[in-house]
Structures are given as structure tokens and as C-alpha cells.
């Protein structure tokens, strides 16, 4: 196979910057070179490495749906050198993007089933991609439920889209904030995501659960899904280990013999159980 230098990023123009929550922004990105755009395609669950030239690369998912062509979106929290540099970028600026990398959610195998998305905080972006993908293929799935929580009402991301999902009849959205995180006009639930799941128990019958969130949320959510009768094979999650290359070489993301960047980031729970707890 003829090798090419995979570290050369696509150049992307920041078309739109959306403020989502404190320190969280969404970029809408367009390919500067139309040839790059023409040969680019991805599937739900995949990620990329976004870079500010001179500052470095940072890994996050593609948060827009593959059904929406011509652009990609990413949502990130300002936590380190690169994400801070990204956050300082403005509309019209050029950034780098490499990808798509990693495996995908097997959405085709979910046709005819109910989907329940359970997520918290900044972990909605990877599922937002899947949710919009499912909504764009709405007739392929039965019920779609989203349980989404954040520390406070202010910390919820995609507030405008949450409002849209609230108003749609083909998706059930349950929003929750941690106790004390509600505003006076808060209409959603108050409580941690696992408790809200328990309070609104979905049927495990013919249902796929997609769980994505901070480790503690996942840890407390899984036993509830077990109790509700979800088999391990019906539960999906994503891992987010540190990554530097995206192509299974740099070694940073390894969990056992798995390179999360190419064998993941999407894991079915029964597959995840085979890996050492190094994520």
C-alpha cells in the first residue's frame, strides 16, 4: 500500500461559532479545499483531531450528523492548551482537521428498534450526531428517548436543539439538572441521570441503550439498565482516552490490546467488559 502522510490536516474554515455553555463552544466547519470535501465522508460515532496551527491537536467527536452534508460540527470544552487556542478562534479563521477516525455506531443494525440515549454534560455531542442521524432516518426506528442531564441548567449544551426536541412528537426528551442546579423557571427534572432513568424506566424489550457521560454516571447507570433487563449486547458506549495520532500508532489510547482510536471509540458493553479497566 502506498503510504501517505496522515498527519497533514484538512484546512477548515470556521463558519459559525455557537456559545453553548460556560467554556463550551460549537464550531461549524467547512472544507477550504472543495476536493477535500468531495472525498470526505464519515459515520456516526467517528471522531477527528482538530488543530490550531502552532498549538497542537485535540481529539473530539464529530458532533453533526453524517446526513447533513457540506459541513461538520464539533463541540468542545476549554480545558487545555489546544482547546483554549480553539476557543480563541473566531468565525472565518482557519483550523486543521484530521479524520474521520475510529469505528461507528452500528445504526443499520438498530433498524426497527427503540433507542434510548442516556447522557450527561459535555457527553451529549457524540450522541447528538447519532440522535440527528436517527431523526433524519426517523421511519427506521421505533421510539426514541433521550435522557440528558447537566450540573446546572446553564451547563446544558445545544439548548436551542433541546427546545426543538421538546416540541417534536417523534422524540421524547427528559432533561434533568443536579439538585441545586435548577433555575426558577426550570421545567425539567431535578436529580442525577441514573436516578432519573430509574424514575422513568424504559422497556428493555427491543431497545438499544446508548450511554455516554462521565465515568461516574456510566458506572451508576449500567446497573440500572441491567435491572431493567437490558442485555449487555444492547448497550453501547464510547471511550475517550487520550489520543495523539488517531491511527493506532502513538499508543496513548491503548486499553489492553485495543487502540481506542481505531478499535473504538464505540464499544458494545459486552466487548467493553473484555478490556482491562484502563479507561
Amino acid at each position: 500500500m502506498e503510504a501517505k502522510n496522515v498527519y497533514i490536516p484538512y484546512q477548515m474554515k470556521i463558519e459559525k461559532v455557537t456559545y453553548e455553555a460556560p467554556q463550551i463552544k460549537t464550531f461549524k466547519l467547512k472544507f477550504i479545499n472543495p476536493e477535500d470535501e468531495a472525498k470526505f465522508s464519515f459515520k456516526a460515532g467517528q471522531f477527528g483531531l482538530y488543530s490550531v496551527f502552532g498549538e497542537g491537536e485535540s481529539t473530539f467527536c464529530i458532533a453533526s450528523s453524517p446526513t447533513r452534508k457540506g459541513y461538520i460540527e464539533c463541540t468542545f470544552r476549554e480545558v487545555g492548551r489546544v482547546t483554549t487556542a480553539l476557543a480563541n478562534c473566531e468565525e472565518g479563521d482557519t483550523i486543521g482537521f484530521r479524520g474521520p477516525y475510529g469505528n461507528t455506531f452500528p445504526m443499520e443494525s438498530w433498524f426497527g428498534k427503540n433507542l434510548i440515549f442516556i447522557t450527561g454534560g459535555i457527553a451529549l455531542p457524540p450522541l447528538r450526531c447519532v440522535i440527528w442521524n436517527a431523526l433524519d432516518w426517523r421511519d427506521k426506528f421505533k421510539d426514541i428517548i433521550v435522557i440528558y442531564g447537566a450540573r446546572t441548567a446553564e451547563d446544558l449544551v445545544y439548548k436551542h436543539e433541546l427546545a426543538e426536541w421538546e416540541s417534536r412528537s417523534d422524540i421524547d426528551l427528559i432533561q434533568t439538572v443536579d439538585p441545586g442546579g435548577e433555575t426558577p423557571d426550570w421545567k425539567g427534572e431535578v436529580g442525577f441521570v441514573p436516578a432519573i432513568l430509574e424514575k422513568n424506566p424504559p422497556s428493555s424489550e427491543n431497545t438499544i441503550a446508548i450511554v455516554c457521560g462521565p465515568p461516574i454516571m456510566i458506572k451508576l447507570t449500567l446497573p440500572i439498565l441491567m435491572k431493567l433487563g437490558f442485555p449487555n449486547e444492547s448497550i453501547f458506549t464510547t471511550l475517550e482516552n487520550r489520543m495523539k495520532c488517531g491511527v493506532g500508532k502513538c499508543g496513548h489510547c491503548m486499553v489492553g490490546n485495543n487502540y481506542v482510536c481505531k478499535d473504538g471509540p464505540v464499544y458494545r458493553y459486552d466487548e467493553l467488559l473484555k478490556l482491562p479497566l484502563e479507561y
Partner: peptide, 16 residues
């Protein structure tokens, strides 16, 4: 074979 990726630059040019 593990490696890190680092950027270095001045305002006009840089290296990954």
C-alpha cells in the same frame, strides 16, 4: 514505538 505530537511556532511559521 509510542510517541507524542507537539507544535512549535513563531507568528509566521511553525512545525508539527
Amino acid at each position: 514505538s509510542c510517541f507524542d505530537v507537539q507544535d512549535e511556532c513563531n507568528p509566521k511559521a511553525g512545525t508539527r
